[in-house]
Design a protein around this nucleic acid. Structure first.
Length: 496
RNA sequence: GGUUUCGUGGCCGAGCGGUUAGGCAGCGGUCUGCAAAACCGUCUACAGCGGUUCGAAUCCGCUCGAAACCUCCA
């Protein structure tokens, strides 16, 4: 691998050189969505962060297996609701099978990820499809002596684990603080300790999502699925585990403890976490009235939005910030991003029309700047913990060159032009995963253009200038557009 | 209250001890039949207060502000 990739490991709070377990293979596990609601910006940022990792690693030659799960068992509403299964609750409210709810929101998630041009992961395992693996994991933890059963539920003994292991190493939590900080809640006497977490939960009779287990009917604790599925598909040692910063504690901390208890070692080598988003400087929350789904963004159908923003605008906007920085959404910022992206794409279209200067008059681009320098900067940016904002800054340097050459203010040799073109395409489309939306979806534009042409042609015909009229018709035909003159004027069709 | 991220110019956002970030907006110019685009030039910054250093946006401490997590459960 010619590129030395450096990434920030949350575990050590440092940037580290990335050394895969089995080069050129790389295993990545990312915590995917809990499918009980419509996808929103938080989903987009997390998915896009690791889409960029996935894309770039493939670009520099790694063979990546990217696993992103779907959490579809036993979840609670987080805020006001009390101790009820998220998916089960939604199901009863809407009179649906739980799996029907899961399917619906999984499909919605996929739809919006596709619109954002986020690549599908290599494997997308569902928690509900891996109950057996989770039970096996819990058995191992039992055998190792770090689990206890209580009224049909199984809990992880954090205090015991912490005696011989560093519990809290990922999140910086200190066990004593956790124990002293927590208040005693009724109904939780099942746990020996407030810091303990569930491995398996006994299902009450009204709980509709349930599976048989050695401890009775129930459902797995939240953290079990990721430990079980990551190891199943990536092995007992794998490279990267990712997710949002909100999952740091308790979820990822618990995963580390579980895996260590079950396997005797930690499977994950690098932990990566993307930062959160805010809207107009505020957190996004249903109670604050600024909870905006991706559908609402794309349609512009939320009162906080001045207009609709295309998937690529959202994508570009998110990529303009580093994944470890908080990102604030505002109309002003989105519109600035929209204009910037348009500029990037317009340069891309100009690039296709550029011609190299003949060798006799080859003059390089502006003094001191070469395409290979920019190429180097692009790779340096991405190698340095996936710094997409710096990459984009470099791409705007390409834009400047393209526009200058278009204006005949600078010149490019054929080699430079080919290099420039390759660089632009590789980073804009392949690595950043952007798509020029105006070129793909332009039915409206085409309609407008054709109406204009037809009208002009009608004027020409009324002047009996049939030479021009026929020329228009013939030229259009060459573009596979057939003009048909009828009694009520001309119509046109596209021949495919 | 604890843990973890942050606080940069009109707005968004890079920056990891000394050297231009970049985008959007503004201003001045070039180009243009007009408009748009483009190109050139230009302005303004590092939350506050201390400390370390020859030198700090960048390291340390405190204060203020924001976000995530810290209870069941996923």
């Amino acid at each position: 691998m010619e590129n030395t990739l450096i990434l920030y490991n949350t575990l050590t709070r440092k940037k580290e050189i990335f050394l895969p377990v089995n080069p050129p293979f790389v295993g990545i596990y990312v915590c995917g969505p809990t499918v009980y609601g419509d996808p929103h910006l938080g989903h987009a940022r997390a998915a896009l962060t690791f889409d960029t990792v996935f894309r770039y690693m493939k670009h520099i030659g790694y063979k990546v297996r990217y696993v992103r799960n779907i959490t579809d068992v036993g979840h609670l509403e987080n805020d006001a609701d009390e101790g009820e299964d998220k998916i089960g609750k939604k199901a009863r409210l809407e009179q649906l099978e739980p799996m029907e709810v899961v399917q619906y929101f999984t499909d919605r998630y996929h739809l919006y990820m596709d619109l954002l041009n986020i690549l599908k992961p290599s494997i997308e395992p569902r928690a509900s499809g891996h109950i057996i693996e989770q039970i096996e994991l819990i058995k191992k933890i039992f055998d190792a002596g770090f689990a206890y059963e209580s009224k049909g539920s199984v809990y992880f003994d954090v205090e015991k684990f912490a005696k011989t292991n560093n519990y809290g190493k990922l999140s910086g939590r200190i066990l004593e603080d956790l124990l002293s900080n927590t208040r005693q809640l009724e109904g939780q006497q099942e746990k020996h300790n407030s810091a303990d977490f569930a491995l398996w939960k006994n299902a009450m009779p009204e709980h509709i999502m349930r599976w048989p287990s050695p401890w009775g009917d129930g459902f797995p604790g939240w953290h079990a699925e990721c430990s079980a599925m990551s190891v199943k598909y990536l092995g007992e040692h794998f490279d990267i585990h990712g997710g949002g910063m909100d999952l740091l504690f308790p979820h990822h901390e618990a995963e580390i403890a579980q895996s260590k208890a079950a396997l005797g070692h930690e499977p994950v080598h690098y932990w990566m976490h993307n930062n959160m988003i805010t809207i107009n400087g505020q957190k996004m929350g249903k109670s604050l009235g600024n909870f905006i789904t991706l559908e609402e963004f794309f349609k512009g159908s939320h009162k906080a939005l001045e207009k609709a923003y295309t998937p690529m605008t959202i994508r570009f906007f998110i990529l303009q910030a580093h994944y470890r920085s908080p990102l604030d959404f505002s109309n002003e910022a989105l519109q600035a991003a929209e204009k910037g992206m348009k500029k990037l794409f317009e340069a891309g279209r100009s690039l296709q029309r550029l011609i190299a200067s003949p060798p006799s008059e080859n003059i390089l681009t502006s003094p001191g700047i070469s395409i290979s320098d920019i190429r180097k900067s692009c790779y340096e940016a991405m190698n340095d913990d996936f710094n997409s904002p710096i990459l984009i800054a470099n791409l705007f340097e390409l834009v400047r060159i393209i526009n200058s050459v278009t204006d005949k203010k600078e010149r490019l040799s054929l080699t430079d032009l080919l290099d420039l073109s390759e660089l632009y395409n590789a980073f804009v489309f392949e690595v950043l995963g952007l798509k020029d939306e105006s070129s793909g979806n332009n039915a409206e534009l085409l309609d407008g253009l054709m109406n204009l042409i037809i009208e002009l042609r009608a004027q020409v015909r009324s002047n009996k200038d049939y030479a021009t009229s026929d020329k228009i018709r013939d030229e259009l035909l060459r573009l596979k557009i057939q003009v048909k003159d009828g009694k009520e004027g001309a119509t046109w069709t596209i021949d495919s």
